[in-house]
Design a protein around this nucleic acid. Structure first.
Length: 456
RNA sequence: GGUCCCAUCGUCUAGAGGCCCAGGACACAGCCCUUUCAAGGCUGCGGCGCGGGUUCGAAUCCCGCUGGGACCGCCA
């Protein structure tokens, strides 16, 4: 095979799964794993399966199941088989597959490969077995079953497969389900790499072929420890609430442990799916970097079509107490969207963009922010504003031309006139080009604001 | 304690023995643009953890060390 050629080949019958336990919201790590599974399925035209691992009776809830699913949808990850849509290999909820787990446990019991202890069924770890697998990401991993010891002991650790409450354990159920669901590639976090040998032992005991394994590098916090609540936002939804867009979070997560090559860092879901290659996934754990996320979000924000951008920003205006609906009714949706187009690359999140542009929606926040400056020569400013507002058409270009004429004639500085105008119109020291802002606000609105501050 | 995994700028990464006295991106600094702030353009800062091999040649292969991490639950 010619180097590089394999990247264009697609595998057939790819079936991958994301198997969260519904014990909390979808978090960054889970989203990352789900994303890579999705990428591999879509890259190969295969199937992406959502399986719910709800065997922890005390912590699992149906609510979390819903939350995880909506989190995945928010990220743009759709699945082909799952609890909500069914499929040929269901049920897709482990608590509904108990008879299956029981059936194979009985078989293991009959063959003397497992034994009972109390109500639990325990798989007997065979001694001195060489276990190896070729991980697509990590390469060959070799272990001997003698290394599977109990903690701080030299005793071989047997594997509980059915708990006293009748539920299967993770290491057992995952084998039964992946086999029965014909999973071709098991793609999961690197923290599972040391569970894999135990699972292979069970595959062997049952006489089954093992799937291909691909472990993914962990996501770390700034302190290089596994990402957890201590590091702040871990739930996918917290990112939505901070004003990050699903496209960006997707893009950012895809870049943790993988690169699209050709220096391409900003991409869409389908571009990522086309380019994705499991064998190119990195082994080194990746640190979650907010700076990069911000940058990626800003890039996607810039690329959005005006209406979509408006939909992203609108909730944050509303959150700030602005009557967006009213403005939309009077000035129109396009006008509001246009205001955001003017914002161009300003603001890295939808929330920031909303904060930086509130003066388009309402004059009220401007009034609150504005404080008089005694050094201003109001008479001169009035003269200037009257002059530029004489423009036939209330266009940025016309106003700017008049303004330039004015500063040249009077030998004064543009900023001494533009800045007070900006401050009166927006209540801010920074904004897009102030003549463009004025044009968008319109002649009447501008006059009203200037008059309110006694500048006209 | 046992087993396993990992190691390129601060961060994400490119790198499959010569194309690399290591390339890109974020961040940072400076300059340009300019009515402000962004955006954009340009420049700069900054890295192969250490020690041995193998080889004509090593970031890349091997060994050791060091440093991280994961697992060793009737959690998943």
């Amino acid at each position: 095979m010619v180097k590089g050629e394999k990247y264009f080949l697609k595998m057939e019958n790819v079936r991958v799964r994301f198997a969260p336990s519904p014990t909390g919201a979808l978090h960054i790590g889970g989203g990352h794993t789900a994303l890579f599974n999705w990428l591999w399925a879509r890259h190969n035209g295969g199937k992406f399966i959502l399986r719910i691992e709800d065997t922890d009776l005390v912590r699992s809830t149906k609510e979390y199941e819903q939350t995880i699913m909506s989190g995945m949808k928010w990220l743009g990850l759709d699945w082909d088989e799952g609890v909500d849509i069914g499929g040929d290999y269901g049920p897709y909820r482990q608590s509904e597959r108990l008879d299956l787990y029981k059936q194979y446990a009985e078989k293991l019991l009959d063959e003397g490969k497992a034994y009972k202890d109390g109500e639990a069924i325990i798989f007997k770890t065979p001694a001195n077995q060489d276990i190896s697998f070729d991980d697509i990401v990590y390469g060959r991993v070799e272990v001997n079953s003698d290394g599977l010891r109990e903690k701080d002991s030299d005793k071989l650790k047997d594997i509980v497969i059915i708990k006293s409450d009748g539920m299967p354990t993770y290491n057992y159920a995952v084998v039964i389900d992946d086999y029965l669901m014909k999973i071709s590639h098991v793609i999961r976090g690197e923290d599972h790499i040391s569970n894999t040998p135990k699972q292979i032992l069970i595959y062997r005991a049952l006489g089954w072929d093992v799937p291909k394994f691909a472990h993914l590098p962990m996501i770390l916090g700034r302190d290089k420890k596994k990402l957890s609540k201590r590091h702040g936002a871990t739930s996918i939804y917290e990112y939505r609430d901070m004003g990050y867009m699903p496209d960006s979070v997707f893009n950012f997560l895809a870049l943790l442990g993988w690169s699209a090559g050709d220096d391409k860092e900003i991409f869409t879901r389908s571009e990522a799916a086309d380019l994705f290659e499991l064998s190119k996934v990195a082994r080194r754990p990746a640190v979650f970097d907010f700076d990069k996320l911000n940058y990626i979000n800003q890039e996607h924000l810039k690329r959005l079509d005006p209406l979509t951008r408006l939909n992203m920003v609108k909730p944050f205006w509303i959150e700030a107490g602005l009557n967006v609906e009213e403005v939309e009714k009077t000035r129109g949706t396009d006008w509001l969207a246009g205001a955001l187009t003017l914002m161009a690359g300003r603001g890295r999140t939808a929330k920031e963009m909303a904060e930086f542009s509130d003066y388009f929606v309402s004059f009220e926040p401007v009034k609150k922010r504005w404080t008089p400056d005694e050094n201003l020569d109001k008479a001169k400013l009035k003269e200037f504003y009257e002059f530029i507002f004489t423009a036939q058409e209330f266009k940025a270009e016309s106003m700017e031309n008049l303004a330039r004429q004015w500063v040249e004639d009077k030998a004064v500085k543009m900023k001494d006139y533009a800045m007070p105008l900006r401050y009166a119109l927006t209540g801010m020291k920074v904004s897009p080009g102030i003549f463009e802002v004025a044009e968008h606000l319109g002649r009447d609105e501008c006059k009203e604001r200037l008059k309110f501050f006694g500048l006209m």
